[in-house]
Amino acid sequence: MSVRLNAGVALLAALAMSSTAFAHGEGHASRRLELSSERHPWGQQGDPAKATRTVRVDMDDRMRFVPDRLEVRQGETVRFVVRNRGQVLHEMVIGTRDALESHAELMRKHPGMEHDEPYMAHVGPGQRGEIVWTFTEPGEYFYGCLVPGHWEAGMKGRIVVRP
């Protein structure tokens, strides 16, 4: 009886740990097998088979993105390959300036908050993540790391979407 109970506890612990990993990075790619139809002012999840180019974005503990400025065309689907060259968790989140600043404030208030959307990649030290995004509207958008303190330290970039 105690062996079964211990095995059940171990299984529950493993499931709990896997859901945390899913929410913050390494496991999130599997969620993207089914495309979301949710639209945002800055676009919508892109179909990887329709990506017209790949943009490599590096993050590091200097709290910077390289590159920190991008230009895309309206309707373009971009595959972002995001590499964390630092020693701490970083993320790339795409949005409007207001959306990112609001989200950064929420993250300061709730630093353990779990979230996972197609416009974000949570990347552990030495790891890489991916975002495939279609920019549906012209304008100026941003990307940033919303780990508490990182946005405020200047970890942000700009995306200009041309018609």
Rank of each mutant, 00 (worst) to 15 (best):
S2P: 11
S2A: 15
V3Y: 14
V3C: 14
R4E: 15
L5Q: 12
N6T: 15
A7T: 15
G8E: 10
V9L: 15
A10W: 00
L12D: 09
A14M: 10
L15V: 13
A16N: 12
A21K: 06
F22A: 14
F22D: 14
A23W: 00
H24L: 12
G25C: 08
E26K: 08
H28F: 11
H28A: 14
S30F: 15
R31E: 15
R31S: 13
S36R: 01
S37T: 11
H40L: 03
W42K: 01
W42R: 02
W42S: 01
G43Y: 01
Q45I: 00
P48D: 08
A49L: 12
K50N: 13
T54W: 09
T54E: 14
V55R: 06
D60Q: 07
D61C: 03
M63E: 10
F65L: 04
V66W: 13
V66Y: 15
P67E: 07
D68Q: 09
R69L: 14
V72L: 06
V72M: 05
V72A: 04
G75C: 06
G75F: 03
G75M: 06
E76F: 04
E76V: 11
R79V: 11
V81L: 10
V82L: 06
L89N: 10
H90Y: 10
H90R: 11
E91P: 02
M92Q: 02
I94G: 00
T96A: 04
T96L: 05
R97H: 10
R97A: 13
R97Y: 11
A99T: 07
A99C: 09
A99Y: 04
L100H: 03
L100K: 02
L100Q: 04
S102W: 12
H103L: 13
H103C: 04
A104H: 05
E105F: 02
E105H: 02
L106V: 10
L106E: 11
M107S: 07
R108Y: 05
K109E: 02
P111W: 00
M113N: 12
E114F: 00
D116G: 11
Y119Q: 09
M120H: 06
V123D: 01
G124I: 05
P125S: 10
G126T: 09
G126H: 12
Q127E: 15
G129Y: 02
V132T: 10
V132F: 04
T134L: 03
T134I: 13
E137M: 07
P138H: 07
P138A: 07
G139E: 04
G139P: 04
Y141W: 09
F142G: 03
F142H: 14
F142E: 08
G144K: 03
L146K: 00
V147W: 09
P148W: 01
P148S: 05
H150F: 07
H150I: 06
W151P: 01
E152S: 03
G154P: 00
M155C: 02
M155P: 00
K156S: 12
G157I: 06
R158I: 13
I159W: 05
I159E: 03
V160K: 13
V160A: 10
P163S: 10
